[in-house]
Design a protein around this nucleic acid. Sequence first.
DNA 1: TAAAAAAGTTGATGTATATCAATTTAAACA
DNA 2: TGTTTAAATTGATATACATCAACTTTTTTA
Lengths: 231, 231
Amino acid sequence: MKTLQQNDINFICELNAPCFQALSPDEVQLVKSSRTQVQFRKGDNLTKQGTFASYVMFVVDGLAIQYVESDLTKNYNLRIIQPGEFIGLSSVFSANTFSYSSVAITDCHVFLVEKTAIAQIISSNGIFGLSLIKRYSEQNVNLYDIIRKVLYKQMNGRMAEALLYINNIKPKYPDIFQILTRKDLADFAGISTESAVKLLKTLEKDHILELNGKDINILDELKLTEICKHG
Amino acid sequence: MKTLQQNDINFICELNAPCFQALSPDEVQLVKSSRTQVQFRKGDNLTKQGTFASYVMFVVDGLAIQYVESDLTKNYNLRIIQPGEFIGLSSVFSANTFSYSSVAITDCHVFLVEKTAIAQIISSNGIFGLSLIKRYSEQNVNLYDIIRKVLYKQMNGRMAEALLYINNIKPKYPDIFQILTRKDLADFAGISTESAVKLLKTLEKDHILELNGKDINILDELKLTEICKHG
DNA sequence: TAAAAAAGTTGATGTATATCAATTTAAACA
DNA sequence: TGTTTAAATTGATATACATCAACTTTTTTA
């Protein structure tokens, strides 16, 4: 477990979260004072769907998967959460419970900010509020896209979309595919693990990608994009 | 087409949209000046998925359905928009295009407010920003619920949920079921029209509801709720 | 008010994809 | 380093729904 200097945190925040730049020194102090730092191990849940949410999480370091759960044992993966992003914004000002779960896929360094502090800053600082609203707006658009994907696309298109999404963050995190299991991939596509395996094999046979153990190399991104759109 | 007095509009807005109460006289003036009133006929599209969105709509009077479209001719109905609600908040501060369509199911009186005016007010008035964020937050929670419904529920449960949702607004709008076609109902449940018809007949045979032409009377709300949860 | 169009209804057929079962491979552990 | 546990793989089977087709009823329109 690595320890972080106060300065590091400030630096990282300023770097990745433009919204924090709008804060006055007083407001920065308010965030600092109502903040708790937490270290999560790979496999730990950062949030659990349905539990009480009085705070927002800000990811300083590490990767996590955000997903929704059914009553049973089925998950659907929504996105990979990267450093500089918030977790729990979506429900903190209405439902008071997390509407999704998230799990660390690498060790994660996170800090929690009480929602009262966030609310106070929004009230006093419109620029900060506006930048948060932009985040909400983006998330909304994303959720509508997900609804369309889930409703209208079938296996091949979903799998292609999942692969392209993950491949998009591979430059930044080259071992991303090695971290993910076939079940993780299947849950991103919203299909069964067995179907995911079969699809991957088919895509390999068609020279669209290459399977090296758990790693995946996209060979024909154009064709995959085509499948994503019309498959 | 009925004409509305300026005072009526103010009254209705104040009544239904608490967020407007936080505005200063200057800000109210700003909204007024950047506002356009529009009258839509039953069947008209208020928004069309993918088109440019430089404004937010505020529904003063009438009902509309919000829905997402596939590339082809399939729709999925998300909600019924009632007076006092916004349309287009979700994407106006990020994508600049509407991420969903909406269609008037009764004549609708709406006013459009330029997003620049909204943004300006958010910047200067944190309380207004916070009240908008609460709306975003609610919408987000709603979208997560929809994703779960679409992913994890099957026919019976979806139909039950759709019926309960619409039945919920029946006290306020008693002719709501008469306005909606079987296709509309099917699109709320995300199933085919034929399946919707068959399900309704089965529910009638089981004395859970009563079909009077287009009107639907829920007889056994408890059982329907049970189906919604575990069906 | 007749004719045309749209909406509603019903049963028969097709299909995408999950589930199941059985095996192999890889990872975790003691 | 062997043993246990978890993940990956493969083909066979099951099923929830959509789609199709044919018909009836209702609504619209000319």
